[in-house]
Design a protein around this nucleic acid. Sequence first.
DNA 1: AAACTCATGTTAGCTTTCCTTACACAGAAT
DNA 2: ATTCTGTGTAAGGAAAGCTAACATGAGTTT
Lengths: 136, 136
Amino acid sequence: MYVSSEIRRTMPLLSMSIVMQLTDLTARQIRYYEEHHLIQPHRTAGNRRMFSLNDVDLLLEIKDILEQGVNMAEVKRVFAKKNESATTAAEKEISDSELREIMREERRQANRMQKTSIRQGDLSRFNHRSARDAKR
Amino acid sequence: MYVSSEIRRTMPLLSMSIVMQLTDLTARQIRYYEEHHLIQPHRTAGNRRMFSLNDVDLLLEIKDILEQGVNMAEVKRVFAKKNESATTAAEKEISDSELREIMREERRQANRMQKTSIRQGDLSRFNHRSARDAKR
DNA sequence: AAACTCATGTTAGCTTTCCTTACACAGAAT
DNA sequence: ATTCTGTGTAAGGAAAGCTAACATGAGTTT
């Protein structure tokens, strides 16, 4: 009861070290993703970053996507599209399958357009993810 | 999804400054309550306290009880009894009303025993708490 | 009244954590 | 071959946290 029930996913409660533990990312990586506007952690009066649970989830998604061999530019596009569809459709959440579908579409478009959008390895895992899907 | 669903109430995620904000207690107070074994926050490798959501709830309860004009010794007894009844009866949670009942009983016993247990003001508010009760 | 207890405030000195900035580097893209 | 990208790492400084110690006001005991 009490506080825990009032914890909002957007409340900046978590310090850098905790987020590093939760996400298994380095501080360098987290700051880099912020630099690219993928997250916007709050700042304390003393300029320290404070993260929300939402931020942690975002970081985990970023990590997950990057590990698939997608580059930052693409991650940004995926997130932009995700926000777009979320706001236009007034949806707050998006499922993993939806996310993968969006990325699949992104990939198709990028391939058609100029094939410069996707680098760093192939995306074959996105089309046969039975093993990974089972884990989620 | 992802992390937030895995957040356990016992995970030490929160720093001192955040807990101060959440509870509106001073660092001095929080450390003092720990000194009296009312909470046992984790420690980082660098000796910093890290609090769980459970700790925050406990602190809020402590604060609430102390604000009624009860002293620490009594708070300890209340908590001891609470733990006892929780473990023996295999109950995890205790309602506010139950808590107040326990404290009422405590007070009666203490008065009978040696009347040294309760100091610092009277407990009259416990018997006519209509205004405060309405807030919870 | 004097001495004591309790819960909290405050200060000092020190350690840990976090910040920014800058440079380095390996692998991929051009 | 050169450039771009994502990450590592180091330096110097500042914020936040720690312990220990003394201070204090309200209530209690002697």
